[in-house]
């Protein structure tokens, strides 16, 4: 899956979970820009797992600050299969 497709899917997931239109750029931050709290973070994670058919360890959440960080992690997990 291409990076652009991952971005588009992430945008859809964020809009669903946050219940608002969001426009994301790679440098968009989850905490400051999107105001994602710990509960929302878990919902987003579950939705990402379902949509991409991957399992994401919650340990990586501490390292993920921006949309680009998350997309990179998803890409990595998709490659691992």
């Amino acid at each position: 899956m291409k990076r652009e497709e991952i971005f588009e899917t992430l945008e859809e997931i964020l809009a669903e979970v946050l219940q608002k239109e969001v426009e994301i750029r790679p440098e968009t931050t989850f905490e400051a820009d999107l105001e994602v709290d710990s509960l929302k973070a878990m919902e987003i994670l579950a939705a990402v797992e379902d949509r991409f058919d991957i399992t994401v360890p919650i340990n990586v959440l501490n390292e993920i600050k921006t949309v680009a960080d998350f997309a990179e992690e998803i890409e990595k997990l998709l490659e691992e299969g």
Partner: peptide, 22 residues
């Protein structure tokens, strides 16, 4: 530092899906 995966609360199907993948 163990890798941690979550499943939806009391959702056995969700647990199995993750367990299968892992």
């Amino acid at each position: 530092g163990v890798p941690v995966y979550r499943f939806r609360h009391n959702d056995v199907e969700d647990l199995e899906k993750r367990l299968k993948r892992l």
